[in-house]
Design a protein around this nucleic acid. Sequence first.
DNA 1: CGATGTCTCAATGTCAACATTAGGACAAGA
DNA 2: TCTTGTCCTAATGTTGACATTGAGACATCG
Lengths: 225, 225
Amino acid sequence: MSSALPKAARRGLADEAADLVRAAIFSGHFPPGAPLREVELAQRLGVSRGSVREGLAQLEHEGLVRGGWHRGTTVIRVTAEDAQEVYALRAALDRLAATTARRAATAEQLCALDRLVAEMTAEIAEGGDAPRLVALDIAFHDQIYAAAGNGRLTSAWEAIRSQVHLFQLRRVDVAYDHYRARVVDEHRELAALLRSGDIRTLARRAEEHVESARRSLLAGLPTAP
Amino acid sequence: MSSALPKAARRGLADEAADLVRAAIFSGHFPPGAPLREVELAQRLGVSRGSVREGLAQLEHEGLVRGGWHRGTTVIRVTAEDAQEVYALRAALDRLAATTARRAATAEQLCALDRLVAEMTAEIAEGGDAPRLVALDIAFHDQIYAAAGNGRLTSAWEAIRSQVHLFQLRRVDVAYDHYRARVVDEHRELAALLRSGDIRTLARRAEEHVESARRSLLAGLPTAP
DNA sequence: CGATGTCTCAATGTCAACATTAGGACAAGA
DNA sequence: TCTTGTCCTAATGTTGACATTGAGACATCG
């Protein structure tokens, strides 16, 4: 069959709260450095502090927020050093994901990649909403990790996924033209290499793809705030 | 100065509970597949269920236990597939950690590596307690990650560290002689390469070191339950 | 006899109250 | 003025009780 059923994942309020807060951070409602108070979030989301607390712990494992003993939780700030760390790790993970997926990916999964590239193309043709493009970008890489089929690798990706998402949103803020001009071509090439490319070339291009994003963000970062 | 003070990290009961349960798993008190009931742990550790719950969530992020919606938490089982996943990811992480540390490590950190190798040598001379050797092995790699100085990379390592620890304990169960014969030499070579070796050679040897561990474990795994 | 519906209970999910702490305001002293 | 000690408060850490759920036992029906 095409795909196993979505296994009816019934989730708890903690996951719900985590999703809500994460979306609020991406939307800019909670800017970098903003404090996330448990009581305030609890009554705003209509759940108890325990659930909010569990959700915040999840976001902390995603690296989106930082907290300490009796010191509250705050949204991370996007410093050049943070970007260096995240993109260095992402390069290593993407490299492994790509080379693994090169051998393990099914035809259906490869088609899903092509479909995402097509959606990016269509999005740009319609004007190009930046957040939507970034979401497609992330979804493309999600699909590669899924195709690799390594649960631990996927978990490692999920631990920096939200940070990458945040950084990419920042990137399109400071260098949208550069991003818009390259996003489709780079992903189209990755998709092609994943379907029928040399492993070593694929590994190199996967790393370079991340390197490209890192430079693009860092070029505009020091000038910001 | 030699080192910044350990910043007096005051921890909560949740971390304490996580440490206790983790140790209990390593010691074999909770064998693979054993259920971890919150109520039982709570009264045995003398803390509330909330703290135990938070601790278990931490262990779940470490991949040591698995849990689902209203389905309890159980210790992971060591299957061949799990080992493949963990060691594939570890190879990528160790490669990045080693190459990064090659440039960033301080003299003090390199000496710490030598000291650990010396401890391994001494331990083997005294008979060679397997769990202690494994602990030194893990500590050696901890030190490399610390020397790399990439917080996100260290977090990714911590997300599989406990699983690696568990797998290595299993490895010395099934192939202690092989482990005992190689552990000192392999780590001594890594330490030397980190001090003054070619980057590409270091990257390759770091991956091979993991590959060696993977094969050693997998060779004895399928025969075991 | 096998399949299906219902029931039961042990275990987890959720909640609101209580205990503890970090960090700042403030005043006294050198 | 700078340092130091104290207090206060807003937030987090912790707890036990209540609500909900999943999985197996059991009975019923085909």
